[in-house]
Simulated scan of single mutants.
Amino acid sequence: MSAPPDLYGRRPTDRMWKFAARAISAYEVATRFMRSEPPVRPVKGLSMKLVVRKTKAEAEDVVSLTMSKEDWSPLPTWQPGCHIDLRLPSGIERQYSLCGDPEDRWTYRIAVRKLGAGSREVHALREGDTVTVRGPRNAFPFIDVPRYLFIAGGIGITPILPMVKAAQDKDWHLVYCGRSRASMPFLDEIAELDPARVWIRPDTEFGVPVSGKELLTWALPNTHVYCCGPAPMIAGVRVDRATGLHYERFSPPPIVDGRPFEVELRRAGIVLRVPADRTALDVIRDAVPAVPYSCRQGFCGTCSTKVVGGDEMRICVSRGHGRIVLDM
């Protein structure tokens, strides 16, 4: 059985993409200190039980879920760029962008590509099932400007789609990439937009992955660029765009200038060495597979762990010096 595709719909056998990803990631490591990452902010929110009202296959290995309260009472308002924390019946918690209509006060819609345990559980949900939702919250704010360029890769269309629909009275363009049209969700809704402002760019129709320069074809100096997709695509855009760039990644950021340290799990009675190129979470998961985590980017707080004699540590992103003693 072949391995599942990545967020961009690619299979591990795509050697050309692997080579491009390594080259772009190396460049990103060299330039990251000159360009700031989006701030990491802790998030909290109200939990509520929602009922799955509709499931729909949107593309290969992509399903959308439409959810509402049991009594159909109004849901908290949201803006383009917002996401929710979805706690599944197994206890797994994951973050997903809202991709419906912000004016619809009664339902939330998300879309999920099948990748890991959490997404497989989402794909197994059926109409009538209940999930717990926290939020919505916005880590990818959509600001009001005269001109936009939207760039989406694969499932990265989910936060971008509501932004595009909200920008219809502005000067805007959309570049939407993916491995193939069959892997790209919501093409039917995008077909309803002005075709002169939309470029659908599947790799299968061009032979190679898109470059950062191609993605920025419509980016004039005063254009604000909103980008969401695989890390290599974002890295390529960042190489060629230093200002007016807003982006959201669906995978952990690369470790830059990491230094090795040790974590002592006090209750487990073990000491683990965290190398320079791995996170504490990655190393701890090898020894304690059930350790909770979710976003792996430092904002959801699921992996927050008490430091003995100190504050909490978000083990997915935080690093230490010498030895850190955790209450685990």
Rank of each mutant, 00 (worst) to 15 (best):
G81M: 05
F250R: 00
P74E: 03
S183T: 15
G244A: 07
V263G: 08
Y108A: 01
V308Q: 08
E103C: 10
N138S: 11
S25D: 07
Y96L: 07
L193E: 10
H83Y: 05
R41T: 14
K170A: 07
L149R: 03
R259F: 12
T223S: 14
R201Q: 02
H83F: 01
A290T: 04
L326K: 08
R41S: 14
S64P: 10
R15V: 11
S97L: 01
H246T: 14
L216E: 04
G320W: 12
V288M: 15
G91N: 13
V51Q: 08
L149A: 03
H83Q: 05
D286G: 13
V164D: 00
F142W: 02
P76Q: 01
P159R: 00
E312F: 15
A219K: 06
G301M: 12
L193I: 13
P202Y: 10
W78V: 11
Q297D: 10
T243D: 15
K165H: 09
W172L: 05
E70K: 13
W172M: 00
K213M: 08
G236M: 09
F261N: 04
L326G: 07
A231E: 15
E264S: 09
K213R: 11
A30N: 08
F250Q: 00
I234T: 06
P275E: 14
A166H: 13
G128R: 09
F299D: 06
V52L: 04
K114M: 01
V256I: 05
H123Q: 01
G269A: 06
A219S: 13
K170E: 06
R238W: 09
A268P: 01
L46G: 11
G100C: 02
W199A: 14
C177S: 03
G269M: 06
C300S: 06
L88T: 06
H173R: 01
R201D: 02
A152Q: 02
P230I: 03
E28L: 03
P254R: 12
V63S: 05
R296D: 02
F299E: 10
P146I: 01
L220Q: 15
K54A: 14
E205C: 14
A21F: 08
L46A: 13
H246F: 15
N222D: 15
P146S: 01
E28T: 05
T305Y: 11
R137N: 15
P5T: 07
D240K: 11
R41H: 14
D171H: 12
A57N: 06
R32T: 09
S47T: 09
P74G: 03
K165Y: 10
T132I: 15
L187C: 07
L75A: 03
A191F: 11
S73A: 15
G236N: 09
